[in-house]
Design a protein around this nucleic acid. Structure first.
Lengths: 328, 328
DNA sequence: GTGTGGGAGAGAAACGTTTCGCCAAAGGGG
DNA sequence: CCCCTTTGGCGAAACGTTTCTCTCCCACAC
């Protein structure tokens, strides 16, 4: 049988209220503290967080919904956030929505039913209606990597990120630049696409031709097919920007199957580790993923402590450009 | 205010016991069922799992401890397991021990304190003593990818995996084969090393020279340095087996920095996706990671349902060999 | 007609905490 | 020396479920 306050009461003669105070940082006299500590170790006592959660209306868990788990971006987010939240006493319940909006809604309900104190989400698209069950029950929600109206968000400056890539490429003399980006259904892709259009116009005075920036399937395959399509154009780009990590991988695979002489300059996204491995070594827009995770965690903790403004908060972080080898 | 059974009682005139029965699959008359359903939707009722957990002594959460989160092996494990467990109503609390035994012990205590119903662990080493708090409280533990005495385990047949690689290589005429493997501190590495030694002896009649199979740092860097060291030997191997994914990556990086003419045949581990990307395209020992995850999930659910034998269970899965391009 | 058994429901007691209201003693300022 | 506040502590009532024990009722077999 697992020990409870009652066992400690039996051993110490103190009341449950005093024991509770001890475990919650209240005022307890030194001798009584020692008594409780002795009893607790003798009984191998472990506080029952479920009972505590019932009374105090806090489960001390945070739900995290990811659009996919098999991406280094998301695993870094989870790893850092989990660490920070655990430090603060919160458990992290993870759910993979597999980029499926319906699954995402299910999962959110699941988490609300699990009485999580807050929810962090990397949403599959821009539709925020699935958050209703959380809102109804005043469960704070923080969106990561997506700007959601009326919701706290932690994002990166996608336009500036792309602009820095374009600046590098135009500086190196490129005038025809292609973009591998996904459809406009997610905030992130929309911003990167808009950032591309604006930056190209800014630098070259011309809007990029539409066939240079059609949307691709957000996947390695999409990047592969997209790069091949770009190079088959009658006036192919001399440089290509990949709007995320999957496109970068796919484009690199495509390049590897081509002769080296036809390689365009490539600017990719994310994942430093792989940069060492793949050829050509691309210039990379690197996101401050760990900082993103920590900001999200702090925002959650702030909301849980009841602090923070009434309106929703948006935190924007900047990327850095890691210049590669054969890309300019 | 969030609705409770009492609100449903007020609306239906039924007792709490009956309402509870309804939510737990007991016998409730049709009309009363409808009454409850109506009241529940009208009140937007959501069952409070914390209260339920207190009374029924089940938190409906499972803790998962990973030695690292940034590995495709582990993310696949988590993703599949989470999906299966959620299907069964369990939330998955994830913790990253970052390959640190002390952190792992902390995290286990943290999870036990969170009253998880079971724990799944990919342990950092062979020391099982950190599991004591779980054992003391009869929290079932399932180890993944490690054989732990006295603990349910789901593993792959590491010896057979390596043997299949050696068979392929010796069949192709290789007689001097190197191994990139980590130190003997984890079960997995020990098995793969032993499998290598046995298979080489089996096939060539000779034990492999010790300098062909010294331990490396388990990391991409270790694979990189290890491969270079092997090729600098006075009698270098004509083929190299990498005992895990990191070694495979590191060795491939090293190969890419060498002239293609000096490439040895390479057999690596895991990650199909990357196999498309890297050159030379290695032969890969592929583990049934999803099956591993599902077996682990089923084992957990079985233990949670009270079924299963008294002794600890070991489930062993087989790998397949995915023959690459330039590896034979 | 009389047991018997099970279905359906009710009341009340858990489950292990936190918290509310109350009290006694100690400390401090006038 | 008295009043007021603070400190440490106590008992009891929550928190929202599940579960134990009872009762009623009806069908069924004998």
């Amino acid at each position: 049988m697992v020990a409870t306050y009652k066992d400690i009461r039996r051993m110490t003669g103190l009341s449950l209220a005093t024991i509770s105070k001890y475990y919650n940082g209240g005022n307890v006299l030194g001798p009584n503290r020692e008594l409780i500590e002795k009893a607790a170790t003798a009984l191998d006592y472990q506080l029952n967080n479920v009972a505590r959660g019932l009374r105090s209306r806090r489960s001390m868990t945070v739900g995290v919904i990811l659009d996919e788990l098999d991406s280094s971006f998301n695993t870094t987010i989870v790893s850092r956030m989990e660490e920070r939240l655990r430090e603060a006493g919160y458990g992290t319940i993870i759910c993979d929505s597999r980029k499926d909006a319906e699954a995402q809604a299910d999962v959110l309900r699941f988490l609300v039913g699990k009485m999580v104190d807050a929810i962090v989400v990397v949403p599959v698209d821009d539709d925020t209606s699935f958050l209703a069950p959380a809102r109804d029950r005043d469960v704070p929600v923080v969106a990561v990597d997506r700007l959601m109206p009326g919701t706290d968000s932690v994002i990166i400056d996608n336009r500036a990120a792309i602009a820095s890539a374009i600046q590098l490429l135009t500086h190196a003399g490129h005038t025809t630049i292609g973009l591998l980006a996904g459809p406009d259904t997610t905030y992130t892709m929309r911003e990167r696409r808009a950032g591309f259009r604006d930056a190209v116009q800014d630098r070259t005075g011309l809007l990029p031709r539409s066939e240079l920036m059609t949307p691709e399937d957000v996947s390695i395959e999409g990047g592969y097919a997209g790069l091949r399509r770009l190079l088959r154009l009658s006036a192919p780009p001399t440089a290509v920007v990949c709007a995320n990590y999957g496109f970068t991988l796919g484009a690199t695979i495509a390049l590897n199957e081509l002769g080296q002489e036809s390689w365009p300059a490539l600017v990719g996204f994310d994942n430093l580790e792989l940069a060492r491995l793949i050829r050509p070594r691309p210039t990379l827009v690197t996101q401050p993923i760990e900082a993103l995770a920590l900001e999200a965690a702090e925002l959650v903790l702030q909301r849980l402590s009841g602090a923070g403004p009434d309106e929703s908060v948006t935190i924007t972080l900047e990327t850095t450009l890691l210049v590669g080898h054969e890309s300019t």
